[in-house]
Design a protein around this nucleic acid. Structure first.
Lengths: 146, 146
DNA sequence: TGCATTTAGATAGCACACTATGTATTTGGA
DNA sequence: TCCAAATACATAGTGTGCTATCTAAATGCA
């Protein structure tokens, strides 16, 4: 019975490790603007100015509904989003970026671009494309979160 | 100013997404044995029977010391590890797998192997190697956590 | 030798992920 | 039309990660 296990040869270990390293890489720049990583998918989903429901945002960010509820609560606490009644459905609210939230978009975009750039600094453009393509295929194999 | 952002082209988003998908993939099998993902690096580090300190385990798992302290507290609560005084240093304790913990090793190993196998089912052996190699290079670029 | 520094660990507080479950509203079929 | 089912969201509880900070013990140098 073989119990020796090389965690560096485990995709689960490596994706989670690199994921945490990327979070660490972007957290500082975001914190300088009072932001945190969980906010990012909401910023990008609402960047166009459209108002979306909590459910729409959960699907866009690929997280479960209670996770999105907590993230939106923090963003509202921080004055980054606002909610208004959904005229079509009284169960839900429409969420949009506040003025303050909208003003953070360039900083969010720059932080993401720069963190990804630092992470892939030692990869060629082709290798970077391969890495993203392989990750995408694994994600498709394992299926959508929701 | 370009604010459109494709999160599927972002290494930070994709590694975190695939990481979560892998956690989901392995959580069920582990839960069937009363285990959870955070325990895995400790199982593998202690599999040989050696007793390690909390600091050793934090370095092996690449997490911060308070994270390891909390994980070890849960494992002790679950009867999987035991601690004994370190004769060389009264500040630390030596941690080792209990009998119950040791008996879980085959299940942990099988769960990891099978989850990684399902995730890479649609990749060739060469592609799987490429993916791990590219992730390793990104991890080395971003440096060790501790 | 003695004290300052370093190191090991504990603890508090927070972010962000999950499942399970409850409430209110909408929808759709008998 | 009306009631059952589905849907949107809220809430509780937990796991796993982080930073900041505290105590106790070990270390190292003047």
């Amino acid at each position: 019975m073989e119990l020796i296990f090389d965690r560096f040869a485990s995709l689960g270990y490596m994706t989670n490790l690199v994921g945490r390293l990327l979070i660490r890489e972007i957290s500082g720049p975001l914190a300088a603007h009072g932001l945190s990583v969980g906010y990012m998918p909401i910023f990008f989903a609402l960047a166009a100015g459209e108002a979306l429901t909590q459910r729409d945002l959960a699907i866009a960010a690929q997280v479960e509904q209670p996770t999105m509820a907590a993230t939106l609560a923090r963003m509202q606490r921080d004055g980054l989003i606002e909610r208004r009644a959904n005229p079509d459905d009284r169960r839900s609210a429409l969420i949009f970026l506040s003025e303050a939230g909208h003003s953070k978009l360039p900083a969010v975009h720059a932080a993401a671009t720069e963190a990804n750039g630092r992470a892939t600094a030692q990869l060629s453009a082709e290798e970077r494309g391969q890495l993203l393509a392989l990750l995408t295929r694994v994600a498709e194999t394992l299926g959508p979160i929701s």
